[in-house]
Amino acid sequence: MRHTEQVLVFDADDTLWENNVVFERVIDDYLDWLAHPTLGKTELRAVLDHVERANSAVHGYGTRIFLRSLRECFEKLRERPATEPERREILALADALINHRVELIPGVAETLDELRGRHHLLLLTKGDTEEQQRKIDASGLAGHFESVHIVPEKHAGIYLRLVGQHGWTPTDAWMIGNSPASDIQPARQAGMNAVFIPNDNTWTLEGCELDPADNRVLRLDRFPDLLRHF
């Protein structure tokens, strides 16, 4: 059953376009390049995840912070600073992140085009402002949204402020995204409804358990399935 006019707030990375899959390809090449004498790729990935978790908590998100994590992981494992040639090699490995084109998830543009005719659509994404704006511009989707918001981090206060500044109530709003930790959980803490659309390539650090009994979280398999509910 479709809901009448609602406020639909959309996540961007890995909800509207593929993002983390590019990071995963870079990480796979990076771990091969490290070629540690005693640690396998699983153990190396655990070290990198630890470094990324610490850096994201302090410095935020985006390619610049990711490159910092790659360098720090290297230096932690080698127990010495990276040389200038090694820094250049790490940068070269991440070239796909710096220069990759935005790849929309199938059905996104068509679905948004139909939804904006009957609902209020907003975009809320976190990360480095310049980098996120570049992806938004490259996606060609900005015109589908009444407003676009880039924030350093997503939490319940951000959701409450976003809905409140437009004069809406949380119960009339839905957060739509792929991340349990950044999209679904804080939106529910703010009293909003949520739509969880999983992406197989969601960042490891964005995972958390969702309450299966929460009837205000709608679970969908594909982005175009939104048209059956909204």
Rank of each mutant, 00 (worst) to 15 (best):
G143L: 11
S179H: 06
V51D: 09
L44R: 09
L48F: 05
A156F: 01
Q132R: 05
L115V: 01
D200C: 02
L124I: 04
R53Q: 11
Y30V: 05
F196S: 11
D11I: 01
G157E: 13
P85N: 10
T171C: 09
L104C: 10
D214A: 05
A46P: 05
P152S: 06
E52L: 05
G157A: 08
E130G: 01
M175H: 07
H166G: 07
A96P: 05
L97D: 07
G117M: 02
W174S: 02
P224Y: 14
T129K: 12
L227K: 12
V21T: 14
I136Q: 05
V148E: 11
H3W: 12
H120E: 03
N20G: 06
D214R: 04
G140Q: 08
A138G: 04
E5I: 00
T63M: 00
T202Q: 14
K126R: 12
F196D: 11
Q165C: 03
K126W: 03
E209D: 13
E5A: 06
G207A: 12
I150L: 04
R64P: 02
L162H: 03
L77D: 05
N19Y: 15
P170K: 01
D49I: 02
E24F: 12
P224W: 14
L48K: 05
L112S: 13
T63W: 09
Y61M: 08
R188I: 01
L70V: 02
T111E: 15
R45P: 00
G143P: 06
A109D: 15
A46N: 07
